[in-house]
């Protein structure tokens, strides 16, 4: 019961979804719609588990006074503030109205957005240090990679004159021809691998995700 029911569920539902793809009628579409909606709803309950995990881990750090235990307080305060503002007890609710709370929007705009954008912009520095790392690479393959990267990076360099024009042409060839070929090979391989994995899941061969007693 503990083991068989989940495996049967997996097999049946996967089969339903596959058959559903080939059957275009209303019943089939409704089934698809329902199943996907349900997954999203179950996801909300999982979210509660997630928040619970975050609270517990933070609380444990504070309780055990691990080094840097003060910081999780910021996590818990941010969490609490956002949840309270998100629910907005003062107003009356309508679907997303809790989310229209003044502070909720402001916390989103002045905390989440700037940090998010800054984290993203760090990529500029990281890509530079990654390029530097590639420079030091000693293997032949890494050198091939670096050369291709250099050609593409230098293509707009105005100091290169005519040479730059060649680089630009080479770049567009690189991106349109070998790039296309390699991506195609990878995608075909990925497709086969993904389908094989899905089949293994369906047949209950791959079941690490179900755990064991």
């Amino acid at each position: 019961m503990k083991r068989q029911v989940p495996l049967m569920l997996v097999f049946t539902l996967a089969l339903v979804m596959i058959v559903q793809y080939f059957v275009p009628n209303d019943f089939s579409l409704d089934t698809n719609e329902f199943l996907l909606k349900w997954i999203i709803i179950i996801g909300i309950f999982a979210m509660a588990l997630g928040i619970w995990s975050l609270i517990r881990v933070s609380y444990e750090k504070i309780r055990r006074r691990v080094p840097g235990w003060q910081y999780p307080i910021a996590t818990l305060l941010g969490l609490a503030a956002m949840i309270v503002f998100g629910f907005d007890y003062g107003r009356h609710f309508y679907t997303q109205e809790g989310l229209e709370n003044y502070m909720f929007i402001h916390l989103f705009q002045y905390i989440i957005i700037p940090i998010q954008a800054t984290m993203f912009s760090l990529l500029a520095f990281y890509i530079a240090s990654a390029a530097y790392r590639a420079f030091r690479a000693r293997s032949v393959l890494a050198t091939v990679l670096l050369l291709a990267a250099l050609i593409v990076m230098l293509r707009f360099n105005p100091y290169l004159g005519t040479f730059g024009v060649y680089l630009e042409k080479t770049t567009s060839w690189l991106l349109n021809v070998p790039n296309l070929a390699a991506k195609r090979a990878i995608i075909i391989g990925l497709g086969l691998g993904a389908v094989a994995t899905a089949l293994k899941v369906m047949l209950g061969i791959e079941r690490a995700y179900l755990g064991r007693d």
């Binding site: 588990l49 975050l54 989440i112 940090i115 993203f120």
Partner: peptide, 10 residues
């Protein structure tokens, strides 16, 4: 195994 957040950059 713990949950952090569902925001990519956070």
């Amino acid at each position: 195994v713990y949950y952090v957040t569902s925001n990519q950059f956070a």
